[in-house]
């Protein structure tokens, strides 16, 4: 029960942090383009503005699905981000929470495209088919890399167990084993596709399919969809950092400076992960075509993920 209370308490924290992360991402992106860029709290302005705007439901839309999916997407991605954060704070876990988190994050991105395809707009449908293809591309290596690391750390499917394993072995997992290092690389490569930013924003490409699934959404529904996206970014970068790069020194910080320091270090680390896997690619790459993206994922991360799984089974 205590865990549940902490989980509820983390929800607003996730909301604040994910929008803040988005703001930093936009600022850094702008600075890399030699622009001043929006203020860091810009996503909050956007969110509030969209929240108090009129909501339009097109007549061609399948009303119930169209209305329900943004809330479902936002809820599942926020909970998906809150679970690891709550576990970090509470230092405990429930069996299978890692699977739950991965499921919620996938659920969120599926809900976005389902809502888009129910809008009755042909671009929404194109976005849907593109997203499903992308899902097949990145979801498998992403999951395999998580499985690989959970074998290494136990085997255990409890998120906090993996962190504990890193504290015990006195090394972060990515440094300790080859298999985990490969898994970490796979996970990092999959982040930009999982959150759908350039070069993998194919389902939402503005110039090709006019934001794809988001095209017919307006007002509060759009705000929720944007929130879902930014909390997915937050959640994945937090997961990537804590699962693979949780240096034991971070844990030792809490002995010296208190628990806030540990949490702060984790957030700082995940910010770095986000800048490397989301901001940097979207600044220096052009958008890929769906076939190219699919091929990219089946030629690099998938074999890497399978290798990592095999290595971790063999004990490397």
């Amino acid at each position: 029960m205590i865990a549940l209370e902490i989980l509820l308490a983390t929800l607003p924290l996730v909301f604040l942090l994910s929008l803040l992360f988005e703001g930093i991402d936009r600022k850094v992106h702008a600075r890399m383009q030699r622009r001043i860029g929006p203020p860091i709290i810009q996503p909050f302005y956007d969110f509030i503005k969209l929240l108090v705007k009129e909501n339009i439901v097109p007549t061609t839309a399948a009303r119930s699905i169209f209305n329900a999916s943004p809330s479902l997407a936002a809820a599942s991605s926020i909970v998906g981000a809150a679970i690891p954060l709550a576990n970090l704070i509470a230092r405990t876990g429930i069996i299978g929470d890692l699977i739950l988190v991965m499921y919620l994050l996938t659920m969120s991105s599926i809900m976005i495209v389902v809502g888009g395809s129910s809008s009755g707009n042909p671009y929404g449908a194109v976005g849907f088919s593109r997203k499903i293809m992308m899902l097949i591309g990145y979801e498998i290596p992403l999951l395999i890399s998580v499985v690989s690391i959970s074998i290494k750390a136990g085997p255990s499917l409890i998120y906090y167990d993996i962190i504990l394993a890193q504290i015990k072995s006195d090394k972060c997992l990515a440094c300790a084993y080859i298999s985990s290092a490969t898994a970490a690389l796979t996970f990092l490569l999959c982040i930009s596709a999982a959150v759908g930013v350039v070069p993998f924003d194919i389902p939402e490409a503005k110039t090709e399919v006019i934001h794809g699934p988001l095209i017919e959404y307006s007002g509060p529904q759009l705000a929720l969809l944007k929130l879902a996206k930014s909390s997915t970014i937050f959640s994945l970068s937090l997961l990537a950092f804590t699962l693979f790069f949780y240096f034991p020194t971070i844990y030792e910080l809490s002995i010296v400076l208190g628990e806030i320091a540990t949490l702060g270090a984790c957030l700082l680390g995940s910010l770095m992960v986000m800048l490397l896997t989301v901001t940097l690619p979207r600044t220096v790459f052009a958008r890929l075509k769906i076939g190219q993206a699919f091929k990219t994922y089946w030629f690099f991360p998938l074999p890497m993920a399978i290798t990592s799984l095999m290595l971790s089974v063999l004990g490397w």
Binding site: M32, Q33, R34, R35, V198, P199, D201, A205, K206, T207, R282, T283, V284, F285, A286, R287
Partner: peptide, 16 residues
């Protein structure tokens, strides 16, 4: 052209 292929940085650079 850069904008169409989603390469915002190049677009900004060229227009600058």
């Amino acid at each position: 052209m850069a904008y169409q292929i989603g390469f915002d940085t190049l677009f900004m650079y060229t227009w600058a």
